[in-house]
Computed example of a mutant assay.
Amino acid sequence: MSNTSPIMNNQSPKKIGITGQKGFVGSHLYNTLGLFPEEFERVEFQKEYFEDTDKLDEFVSQCDVIVHLAALNRHDSEQFIYEMNVGLAQKLVDSLKRTNSKAHVLISSSTQEERDNLYGKSKREGRQAIVNWAQENGGNVTGLIIPNVFGAFGKPYYNSFIATFCYQLTHGETPTIATDGEVKLIYVQELVYTIINEIRSEKSNPELLIEPTSTKKVSEVLSLLNDYKTRYFDGGEIPVLNNQFEHNLFNTYRSYIDHKTHYPVKFVQHTDPRGAFVEVIRLGIGGQCSFSTTVPGITRGNHYHTRKIERFAVIKGKALIQLRKIDTDETLDFYLDGTEPAYVDMPIWYTHNIKNIGEEDLYTIFWIDEPFNPEDADTYFLEV
């Protein structure tokens, strides 16, 4: 399923600032906006700006659009959460007033607004503070009432139960279910494109209820994740993915694997007088399988995907496979040798390449879960 959409016009790029830029949703939104450089220009934000009125005012004055995501989700003290979240919204309001800003402000809130707890109260009051500013100053505001969000790189024991389960199942721990209720869910990338579409609309909506894209029991999610552990993490098999939710959940699960220790995974090689046999991939889904030769010294790749599942399998020759999450500087190096055939799977949002570091041709089998479509390639070029 494609989430990409075309540039809406030929005007100069909208300047977008995100409070909470390095948080779970904020980092996904920031990285996705970077896929549309002709439409959006990102204004850098640092959390320290909330403690420096000059820097906060400088940030606000640059922005055509501000997406206010900065908030505290968990703390030992509910009162501290309440005061922090309301305080952050008020600091933003004060800056909007000082700078006479006409920015379109989108503020994230939660379906917990209606619950009798201080977190929900803090989100409701923070949203209302932004709405009041807009009404009093001719501003433009969108209040995003968001269900439970899950996706790659969420913080375990903080962002969602799915983040916690995924971390536990990839780090030798056993998840337990406290309450097996139904949970309304939205995948982070689905939320991000909803936010982007609201930015494009330029319309005010003080109370926009974001519809969940799936509703699942906690036990149902855990059953799927346990299957991914058994089939994929332990056995190397790509599991059956029946729908978009399962595809998103599988990519979420993959993001919690410690790539440094898990890869490269060596194949089981069967040899007899005729030669050798290796099973490269066992599939519960389809896709596209390709074979390549690479001459010594040549590098392929240097791109990343936001949704595709991909495997590089080295069959002959010597290779260096490199991965780097696009918003970090850390490069992971994996050395593979065809004398012991092995594979590395590519995580989403990691730019990756493969280089022939040997003296003979490198033989590689590539598998990816969807055939290449040049009009929706989900392939973004970036040097590792």
Results as ranks from 00 to 15, higher is better:
Asn9Trp: 04
Gln11Arg: 12
Lys14Ile: 15
Lys15Gln: 15
Gly17Val: 10
Thr19Val: 09
Leu33Pro: 00
Gly34Cys: 05
Leu35Asp: 02
Leu35Tyr: 01
Glu39Ser: 14
Glu39Phe: 10
Phe45Gln: 02
Glu48Met: 06
Tyr49Gly: 00
Ser61Lys: 04
Asp64Tyr: 02
Val65His: 01
Ala71Met: 03
Asn73Ser: 11
Lys91Trp: 01
Asp94Gly: 03
Val105Ala: 05
Asp116Asn: 14
Leu118Ala: 12
Gln135His: 15
Asn140Thr: 15
Leu144His: 04
Gly154Thr: 04
Cys166Leu: 05
His171Cys: 10
Glu173Ser: 09
Glu173Val: 01
Thr174Met: 07
Asp180Ser: 04
Tyr187Glu: 12
Lys203Asn: 11
Pro206Ser: 06
Gly236Met: 03
Glu237Ala: 03
Ile238Arg: 02
Phe250Met: 01
Asn251Gly: 06
Val268Tyr: 08
Gln269Tyr: 13
Pro273His: 10
Arg274Tyr: 12
Gly275Ile: 08
Ile281Ser: 11
Leu283Gly: 07
Lys308Gly: 07
Glu310Val: 09
Glu310Ser: 11
Ala313Phe: 04
Gly317His: 00
Ala319Cys: 00
Lys325Arg: 15
Thr328Ala: 12
Glu330Cys: 00
Thr339Asp: 14
Ala342Asn: 13
Met346Trp: 04
Thr351Asn: 07
Ile354Phe: 04
Glu360Ala: 11
Thr364Gln: 15
Trp367Lys: 03
Ala377Lys: 12
